[in-house]
Write a protein that binds this DNA or RNA. Structure first.
Lengths: 256, 256
DNA sequence: GCTTGGACTTGATGCAGATCAAACCACTGC
DNA sequence: GCAGTGGTTTGATCTGCATCAAGTCCAAGC
């Protein structure tokens, strides 16, 4: 593993609080692996032997039942995944596949569990990460049960805008059919949802989405800090570890 | 607090592994409180100062957006709730209200956080609890995105049957309109869903549901160990801490 | 260049589930 | 007992979204 990669891992919330010894133990058995695009890393139901740290590329987590498939999350660097399964030494509930060429650091699960026993601060950091993930899922469920498809799309666009702290144009980082599944709709319906948003200040141009009237879009989307993590809360400071669904690093600002 | 209550708390997964000193510290500042039925304990957005341990009664967690409301979970003893918010010292994402008269042990949040710093085994137990909760929410999302209303109801009935390790009759422990919201449908639709299940060996009699043909119901429900925690996995032993959505105690057998 | 395949869009149709409305029932309180 | 209230059921209707079916666009391969 290159020193620069080590630095990146060291910088994660998960290890930031840990004792140097803990960090050494955990990363000693770790190995960096590269995967091509469209590679399944793990099927749901598989035993989870490693904690995965995505350093480069994009990974999709999805679930299956009765010949249906749904995208649960898209991960971008730097994110860890499968932490809950590792902590419990349990099977994976979701499959993971690369959407593009990826660099992934794989840390043996028992190293993580051992480190937690030895270092309360590290165990605390794991708890914070899991708690943040937990709250992200609560937000996701509220999003799905309380809003319509168009409303979910509108809020997704606002979240993207906030994450990229961009101007009036955001870029979709993956295919629309994947976004559709993530938002819980069909590709056809996503297309129509975009069309519906034209009346609310949104125009689409391939992967680029122009938000020409933010006020109008927000009026439709009604973002809420208790669902949308990006939404402003009344003058409050955003708690760092409560950042996102899959990793506290997911949503950090100034990425690239 | 009565000694018997202390014993019940001591028996929880959360404290089972903790050092006696940790247990003492955490429960020293705790107080037992009784609430009447239909009392809101906490609104979403409120600051969370306590970890709540439900010792008696039923509590509903629900979320709101734009004048809509949805039930996120129903808790029964012995369950903890708001652990994720406590770990992060964050606002509640869900409101909590009693459905009936409740006894709740309230443990100061900072006592929990302090105990985690001091006792790695306790921090580990918190992680396991959160990881179990996390996985429960993943199951919930798969359930909602991949199944229809009737399928969700069918699986819910099978889960009830499994939890009560009962015979062919299960009892609904709360009102149908609450169950409807929990399953993501309207009361009218739940009624029709029950009617639809008549063709698959289910008859309803108030709060009692008779499953006259389990094979037929399972053929419709297609329970899956990666969604339904009760579903049998191939000869495997069920991992204890991965027990349920809101608490590892939720689903334990031989309750009453 | 042409061809092929997959992503995306657009239109027509069908279905699951929401909404509206009314009736029924059980329980509560007077 | 009786009226009132709220939960539940049933029916009629409406809507959002899925499904089915073309057709377009675009990139990769021959």
């Amino acid at each position: 593993m290159r020193p620069t990669d080590l630095d990146r891992v060291r910088g994660l919330h998960l290890f930031g609080q840990a004792a140097p010894e803990t960090f050494r133990v955990a990363t000693a058995g770790a190995h960096l692996q590269r995967f091509p695009a469209n590679t399944t890393l793990l099927f749901e139901g598989d035993t989870v032997d490693f904690l995965y740290m995505l350093l480069e590329g994009q990974v999709e987590l999805h679930g299956t039942w009765n010949d249906h498939e749904t995208v649960m999350a898209i991960l971008r660097p730097v994110s860890s995944f499968l932490l809950a399964a590792v902590v419990l030494d349990a099977d994976a509930l979701m499959s993971a596949r690369t959407l593009e060429r990826c660099e992934i650091l794989m840390i043996p699960g028992d190293a993580i569990r051992t480190a937690m026993q030895l270092d309360a601060r590290f165990a605390m950091a794991v708890s914070r990460d899991l708690a943040g993930g937990y709250r992200g899922l609560v937000r996701t469920i509220k999003n799905h049960k309380l809003r319509s498809g168009v409303e979910r799309l509108a809020n997704h666009l606002l979240a993207l805008r906030s994450a990229d702290n961009a101007g009036s144009t955001v870029r979709l980082h993956y295919e629309k059919r994947i976004l559709a599944s993530l938002l819980g709709m069909t590709p056809e319906n996503l297309s129509r949802a975009f069309a519906a948003l034209q009346a609310h200040g949104v125009t689409v141009e391939g992967a680029l989405v122009h938000i020409t009237n933010i006020a109008a879009l927000e009026a439709l989307a009604k973002p809420d800090p208790l669902i949308d993590n990006h939404a402003p809360r009344g003058g409050d400071i955003l708690i760092d570890a409560d950042a996102e669904i899959w990793s506290s690093e997911w949503n950090r600002k100034a990425r690239r």
